[in-house]
Design a protein around this nucleic acid. Structure first.
Ligand SMILES: NC(=O)c1ccc[n+]([C@@H]2O[C@H](COP(=O)([O-])OP(=O)(O)OC[C@H]3O[C@@H](n4cnc5c(N)ncnc54)[C@H](O)[C@@H]3O)[C@@H](O)[C@H]2O)c1
Ligand SMILES: NC(=O)c1ccc[n+]([C@@H]2O[C@H](COP(=O)([O-])OP(=O)(O)OC[C@H]3O[C@@H](n4cnc5c(N)ncnc54)[C@H](O)[C@@H]3O)[C@@H](O)[C@H]2O)c1
Lengths: 208, 208
DNA sequence: GTCTGATTGTGAAATGATTCACAATGTGAA
DNA sequence: TTCACATTGTGAATCATTTCACAATCAGAC
């Protein structure tokens, strides 16, 4: 589950690189051409050493006196995701959470693009939402296969998380972002990441 | 940020314990009185050794022949959270995501209870939503202090995440679950956990 | 009552992530 | 041109987490 067999870049590092890129965006327009590891660290709430390690992982190399060339660094991080650039995602479960997510990603045109949404409720599984076409779950297999969708976002009730997962994997999905509070049984090649909001909240409460 | 100075129980372990408890709930009603570490592991998608380590962390001890007494174990996990049992939470930013979360927690009566919600939009910052009273942000400091709220859920746009955080911490909040894609600057005593959905999605896409 | 066998509890090893610490480097100042 | 200096890139050390492996244990069979 979520190993780094893929590229050698550790999962934690990938997350931070995405963050760095976000923090650097727009900096050039503000006239900032170069940035030091400790300045990135300051923005990202981590250490300069960690930033340097992370950049090392993608082979990006700075300059001891100037630091990192912002534009170039952003390009370099983008390069990491180049191969996966045109990956498509589907969201299953157009409920309260699903709609919030659909709206968010449609607005930002973030990647991977969500190009289909599914729901078992006939009222929701038609038309479109936030510009994203909606289908009944029965169409899941065929639409995922047809559109070459490789990433799934799971926002169905817990009881349906496993069966929907099974469907998606058969249809061609290889990675799933799971919001249902249920550990999914998947083959080893599948990439799964869980976002368990209730647990996270309880954890925060526990530590304060 | 999110250390385990508190109790000696590591954060990762706390998360898994919450999961185990969820997986065990209702098992007694189904007539299951005892369970083995490898059975819990099977449900939780992890290893028997890890389950045993986690239970060791809370000093719970099973029986080599029978395994763990389900009821007793659940009680034991609950015991961990006993002190924090009546913690209250506030949600700031009654937008799409905020409403989804409010609805979810209201329904489940999950802990910590969300007892107040805030929004800068006058239309949203009044009345109630999902049974939770809504206030304008101006009331944030006083309501948090009045109700003894210690946990904050941040679902405001990125630009407002830091100022709202500052307000909450001054008012008495000690832990924050942050959904805005912004690293928060907080004093060392504050507990912060970030749920960065967009980054997680990109990470999943990257690894498949 | 004793013996058997699966399971627990836990040191110790392995693995993974972060931090340390410093030689190598490039720049701007003199 | 040379020098001084802050910063990079990175092995090595540290710290955290997971897995291994096995002696201790308990229930049930005989
Ligand atoms: N809303 C939250 O803040 C929140 C927090 C934590 C966890 N979650 C989890 O996220 C998931 C969704 O939560 P929600 O609040 O959006 O629930 P919801 O009930 O609003 O939405 C669920 C949607 O899934 C659809 N659905 C049900 N079965 C389906 C199937 N087999 N195939 C396709 N669609 C199906 C329903 O029609 C509904 O539209 C749940 O698993 C929930 O536990 C949500
Ligand atoms: N919706 C998603 O799926 C999603 C995904 C990833 C990240 N996020 C993040 O979560 C946050 C909320 O997202 P959303 O989609 O719900 O946005 P939204 O615009 O629907 O909601 C934001 C809410 O915050 C309120 N607000 C603005 N400034 C405020 C202030 N100073 N004090 C109190 N309330 C204030 C607004 O009135 C609005 O109701 C954003 O930071 C977003 O980046 C959301």
């Amino acid at each position: 589950m979520l190993s780094s067999e893929n590229t050698g870049v550790p999962a934690r590092t990938v997350e931070r690189l995405v963050l760095y890129r976000r923090l650097l965006n727009g900096l050039t327009e503000q006239g900032v051409e170069f940035i030091h590891s400790h300045e990135i660290a300051e923005k990202a709430n981590n250490s300069a050493a960690q930033v340097r390690r992370d950049l090392m992982a993608i082979g990006y190399t700075g300059n001891p006196a100037r630091g990192y060339a912002v534009n170039d660094l952003v390009r370099s991080i983008n390069g990491l995701f180049e191969q996966k650039r045109d990956q498509k995602a589907a969201l299953v479960g157009i409920g309260k959470l699903g709609r919030a997510i659909l709206g968010y990603f449609a607005l930002r045109q973030a990647r991977p693009r969500i190009v289909a949404a599914f729901d078992s409720d006939p009222a929701k599984g038609q038309g479109e939402f936030a510009g994203c076409p909606c289908y009944p779950v029965d169409a899941l297999t065929s639409v995922i296969a047809r559109d070459g969708i490789t990433v799934g976002i799971l926002t169905v009730p817990a009881d349906f998380a496993q069966p929907v997962t099974d469907l998606m994997l058969v249809a061609g999905v290889r990675g799933i972002l799971n919001f249902a509070p249920t550990p999914l049984k998947t083959p080893a090649w599948a990439v799964v990441d869980n976002v368990d909001i209730a647990t996270k909240l309880e954890k925060v409460a526990f530590f304060c």
